[in-house]
C-alpha cells in the first residue's frame, strides 16, 4: 500500500490539525499529479495523505491594492485562463499554460508545483520572475517568504509539507507599469518538461524610458530556479535598447551552471539557449510595452 489513510480536509485549520495529529507521518496532497507518482515509486513517503484540493477559499486570483494575490490551490488551468493574469502578469499565465497537458493543468495546483520544487517548474520560474512572495501557514502562525528563499535544492523546498502549507502567492503590479513574458524550449510542442524556461518581468515608469526593476529567472540551469542578477543589473543601469538586451542575455548565459543531461542536452547547448531565450523573452516583454504605448 502506497499510503494507508486519505483524508479530505474542508479548510486549512482542519488540514493543519490533521498534520499535527499524525506527527510527521501525514503530508499534504493538492492535485497530486507529481506526488502520487513519487509515492508509488518510493521517492517520497507518507502514511497519511491530507487532501486540501477541495478547499475552495484557497482558489482565487485577485488584485488587491497594487498586488496580485493567488490562492495556493489555484489550478494551472485557472491561472492560464485568468483574464487578470493575462493582462497584468502574462509570464504566469503563459507558464501555467505550458505545464503538462490539459489533464494535468486541470488538477495540478500552483502551490503543489512550488512545493514539489523541481528546478524548472514553469510556475516557479514565473513567480520568481515576478519577485513573488509566498504566505506559509502552520500551527505556529503565518510567515512570508520570498520565492527566492523557498527552494533548497532539486525537489526540496523550505516548506515542510508534514507541518506547513502555502496559503497564497502575491506580487506587486504597481506603481508604474509591469510587463512580463515567458520563454520555453522543450523537446516537443506539448506535454514535455522544459529543456529551458525563462521568465522576465520589467517594471518601468509611465513613459517606459527607464526600468525601475528587472527580474530575470532561468531554469533549469542550477539546482533551484536561478535569478540572473547580473543581467538584471545591466537592464536597470544601461539605456533601454537592443544592445542592453543582448548584454543582459550574455550575462544570464554567464550565470547559468547547467549540468550535462541525457534528456535535456549538454550544458553547452543549454547555456546557448539561455542567451537566445533570455534575449527573445526580454524583447517579447518590451514589445507588449510598445503595444500598450501605441494603443
Amino acid at each position: 500500500m502506497y499510503w494507508e489513510k486519505y483524508y479530505l480536509a474542508r479548510n486549512a485549520p482542519e488540514a493543519l490539525d490533521l498534520l499535527a495529529q499524525f506527527e510527521g507521518q501525514a503530508r499534504l496532497i493538492a492535485g497530486g499529479t507529481d506526488l502520487v507518482i513519487q509515492l508509488r515509486e518510493g521517492q517520497k513517503r507518507a502514511r497519511v495523505l491530507v487532501d486540501i484540493s477541495g478547499i475552495e477559499e484557497m482558489q482565487y486570483i485577485k488584485e488587491d491594492n497594487g498586488k496580485i494575490r493567488i490562492g495556493a490551490l489555484t489550478t494551472h488551468r485557472q491561472l492560464a485562463a485568468s483574464p487578470l493574469l493575462r493582462k497584468t502578469a502574462p509570464v504566469l499565465a503563459q507558464a501555467a499554460a505550458s505545464v503538462g497537458s490539459p489533464q494535468i493543468r486541470n488538477v495540478g495546483t500552483v502551490g503543489g508545483n512550488i512545493v514539489n520544487a523541481q528546478p524548472a517548474a514553469d510556475t516557479a520560474v514565473a513567480l520568481m520572475a515576478l519577485d513573488a512572495t509566498a504566505t506559509i501557514i502552520s500551527a505556529a502562525g503565518e510567515r512570508e517568504v520570498p520565492l527566492t528563499g523557498l527552494f533548497a535544492g532539486v525537489g526540496k523546498s523550505n516548506i515542510d509539507p508534514t507541518r506547513e502549507m502555502i496559503k497564497e502567492f502575491s506580487f506587486d503590479v504597481a506603481p508604474g507599469r509591469l510587463v512580463s513574458a515567458f520563454g520555453r524550449i522543450a523537446r516537443r510542442n506539448a506535454l514535455a518538461l522544459p529543456v529551458l524556461n525563462v521568465g522576465v518581468s520589467l517594471a518601468c515608469d509611465r513613459q517606459a524610458q527607464n526600468l525601475q526593476k528587472a527580474c530575470v529567472c532561468v531554469a533549469p540551469v542550477a539546482p533551484v530556479p536561478l535569478r540572473a542578477t547580473e543581467a538584471e543589473q545591466i537592464l536597470i543601469n544601461e539605456p533601454l535598447n537592443d544592445r542592453t538586451l543582448r548584454a543582459a542575455a550574455e550575462a544570464a548565459a554567464r550565470s547559468a551552471r547547467p549540468r550535462d543531461s541525457r534528456l535535456r542536452g549538454s550544458a553547452e547547448y543549454r547555456i546557448e539557449l539561455v542567451r537566445v531565450m533570455t534575449y527573445r523573452t526580454l524583447r517579447n516583454a518590451l514589445q507588449s510595452l510598445e503595444g500598450d504605448a501605441g494603443a
Binding site: R187, R188, N189, A190, L191, A192, L193, L263
Partner: peptide, 11 residues
Amino acid sequence: LSSYLIPTACD
C-alpha cells in the same frame, strides 16, 4: 512516455 517522447497533436 515521459522520457521517450513521441509526437503529440501539436507536433
